[in-house]
């Protein structure tokens, strides 16, 4: 089990144009990968990533629409900015930057997500397991609507 890198895939629900690709991501993802489907990459709370890191995920993929083609005008640009900052922090605590990848998917990129994931997987396999950072415990988001 541990030989396979564990990858959390955060996907904006609009970014995959072709139906077969979306079907594959929805239903045929290997068990070492976990899909978190959200309305927009801007919806990804850094806490989700922190949780994945704390839980021992070896890599994180964030797939969204191209910068100019966000379904919510500019949600993906907000995400990019926010996560850039957050990745600095992860880097600081010892989670390498190369373990997080942004994938901008264009409308015409049929079959690209499979390739990207395979490519990322082999890269993470090279890096090996992620280090255990402090304790591995759940980070609670809290709040009524959280």
């Amino acid at each position: 089990m541990e030989t396979r890198p564990k990858i959390a895939l955060f996907q904006c629900k609009w970014c995959l144009y072709s139906e077969p690709d979306q079907n594959w991501v929805d239903n045929e993802l290997p068990s070492s990968m976990h899909l978190v489907k959200l309305p927009c990459t801007g919806r990804i709370n850094p806490l989700y990533i922190l949780n994945a890191v704390q839980g021992g995920a070896d890599g994180i993929v964030i797939s969204g629409c191209l910068p100019e083609k966000c379904h919510y005008k500019e949600g993906n640009l907000r995400a990019l900015r926010q996560h850039d900052e957050f990745l600095n922090f992860l880097d600081y605590i010892g989670y390498e930057r190369s373990r997080v990848r942004f994938v901008w998917l264009d409308l015409q990129d049929r079959g690209r997500i499979q390739k990207e994931l395979a490519d990322f997987k082999s890269e993470i396999a090279k890096l090996g397991k992620a280090k255990v950072l402090a304790t591995r415990s759940k980070v609670s988001p809290g709040g009524q609507y959280a």
Binding site: S31, L47, A52, K138
Partner: peptide
Amino acid sequence: FTDESVVEGLWTWLQSQGV
């Protein structure tokens, strides 16, 4: 898409993979 369900989903998966 609530924070709790996302975090819960992540942990269930991570635990199933052996943490």
